[in-house]
Design a protein around this nucleic acid. Structure first.
Length: 259
DNA sequence: ATAATATGGTGAT
DNA sequence: TCACCCTATTATC
């Protein structure tokens, strides 16, 4: 379930559970034994989110987590229940248990490695210190498509596959438009809308791109406009489905002209 | 039971 | 562009 909002939400949720506390760190699944041993018994000093990456700081050392497509967090109060599924890391404070299943990355980093990681991540739409100018410089100089660029985490961080289609639909821009033909004004709208939508995602812990929509249990329900949908909510025309670099993408030809 | 799918990313070709 | 990594859930036989 992870786009950028998921990670920032996790950081927000887990700070009061873990930060400032000495943690028991283990790997119930057994695939992170060495890393867990390095961190076990140390104090978690901070939890930082950068785009889709999460860094649990333990003084000099950082635990780098990237959920990938399948990863998930499970948080609970103690006493700890039996690990559910393949729990790569379990972190336990005096009050809480955080389990991480199926992360794409799970590694201990030294300060240089952590700094290098943060450096290669583009400006994060969810961070107040992000500099959109960096993203604009990349996009406006690139012949790649806007659809590709806004989901490239080194260009701008946080946007995933659903937000991509939804953002470009909301801003009436076709994903195939080359970055160097995107007007500055359109980029500004994309950035601002991304910041708003992802912030709402953090608040609700859900991807909601339909104005005024509420969380719902159905798969995409009324929360998204065109992602995995057939008809355009604006013009009732057919939504076209295609692929961008192997990922599903959606657009309305009528509402999202290429120029 | 087995296959297909998924909101992600990397490294080789 | 493809193969591959990681796991859980849903769809299909």
């Amino acid at each position: 379930m992870p786009e950028g909002h998921t990670i920032h939400r996790a950081a927000r949720d887990q700070r009061p559970m873990l930060a400032g506390k000495v943690l028991d760190v283990s790997s119930p699944q057994g695939r992170f034994m060495e890393g867990a041993a390095q961190l076990d018994g140390r104090r978690c000093t901070a939890i930082d989110a950068y785009g889709k990456h999460l860094l649990y700081r333990f003084g000099e050392l950082s635990l780098h987590i990237h959920l990938g497509l399948f990863g998930r967090f499970r948080c609970a109060k103690r006493p700890a229940a039996e690990p559910k599924g393949e729990v790569r890391v379990r972190m336990m404070s005096d009050t809480h248990v955080v389990d991480i299943n199926g992360p794409n990355s799970c590694e201990v980093m030294d300060p240089a490695e952590a700094a290098a990681l943060v450096r290669r991540i583009g400006p994060d739409v969810l961070r107040p210190d992000a500099d959109p100018e960096r993203a604009w410089q990349r996009i406006s100089r690139s012949r790649s498509s806007v659809g590709q660029l806004i989901m490239d985490q080194s260009v701008m961080a946080g946007i995933g596959n659903i937000y991509r289609s939804e953002l470009l639909w909301r801003q009436k821009i076709h994903p195939d438009l080359p970055g160097n033909r995107l007007p500055r004004e359109a980029f500004d709208r994309i950035w601002a809308d991304a910041a708003d939508l992802l912030a709402l995602g953090v608040r609700t812990n859900a991807i909601i791109t339909v104005d005024g929509a509420k969380k719902s249990k159905s798969r995409y329900g009324e929360r998204v406009n065109i992602f995995a949908k057939n008809a355009c909510p604006a013009c009732a025309g057919k939504i076209t489905a295609f692929e961008i670099a192997g990922r599903r993408a959606f657009a309305c030809k009528r509402c999202q002209p290429k120029a």
